[in-house]
Design a protein around this nucleic acid. Structure first.
Lengths: 142, 142
DNA sequence: TTTCGTGCAAATGGTTTGCAGTGGC
DNA sequence: GCCACTGCAAACCATTTGCACGAAA
């Protein structure tokens, strides 16, 4: 199903193993980035013997090679395919996570960073806010 | 030293205890947000009996009351005084962390978020990039 | 056949929690 | 004196690591 996603592995000199291909397929179908625990649950539902530490090692390796990208939130790390450059908006209230194309955000943020001598990371920024539904749901939130 | 920082505690109905006042003083003098472990090290150098869990509880409570703000990075949480609204730029390479006034970032990012129905958090955004020094230091970084 | 990748189990590090005692107000 | 706050110790949870076996190339 992945078509050419796993081709990338070969090009990088990474072996095509069951855990790796399964992770790539799952992330390719997922609408949002997944945690390692989520990934492990999904992987083991098809291949029960795959170990949690194997999932950890693979997302780390593939992130290092640029195949995946990661964002930190709520004390854990989420992983997604590094396809089109994009960042994320997360709702602090309900956890809703959506992607925004990098070029929508780049000019604005890059300018702010450049003023401080920083060069912006091209992907994986995580911006915190409150989504439409949660804005309306709780006006009197504690 | 803190002058009126700890006044806030009284106004919120929080007791003025040694751990709390010490934490507030330390954060008031710090140039950047501090981790709980850093805070604990500093607090205990003056009051050795203060427990780590007490520091954890206090930063959590004071963050909930809006006295402190927090940012997550590298698997741990950093805390700072919630004074002027601001966000942070962090260098992914050396960890340099600097503050940017909220109003420098707000218009740009708020617009991007609003397009997705999000309302931006007024403080505590963490933007990842590479600082001036690290941009020049390693052209051929691994 | 030679690495690279994996399963397993144990360790690590940040953070949270239950409980009984104590200090702030 | 009441109750929020604390110290202590144990538990928790995400993540990492050492090691011997197994599989991709």
């Amino acid at each position: 199903m992945s078509g050419d996603i796993d081709e990338a592995l070969v090009g990088l000199g990474l072996r095509r193993t069951v855990p790796r291909l399964t992770i790539l397929n799952l992330l390719g179908e997922a609408a949002t980035p997944l945690s390692v625990l989520d990934l492990h649950r999904l992987v083991t539902s098809a291949y029960p013997m795959v170990n949690l530490s194997t999932v950890y090692r693979n997302v780390t390796v593939m992130t290092g090679y640029g195949v995946l990208h990661s964002i930190e939130h709520g004390g854990q790390t989420l992983y997604g395919l590094a396809t089109t450059p994009h960042h994320h908006l997360i709702c602090e209230h309900c956890g809703l996570l959506i992607e925004v194309p990098a070029d929508r955000l780049d000019p604005a943020v890059a300018q702010v960073m450049a003023d401080s001598g920083f060069k912006m990371e091209p992907t994986g920024q995580l911006l915190r806010g409150r989504c439409r539904r949660c804005r309306h749901a709780v006006h009197d939130a504690s």
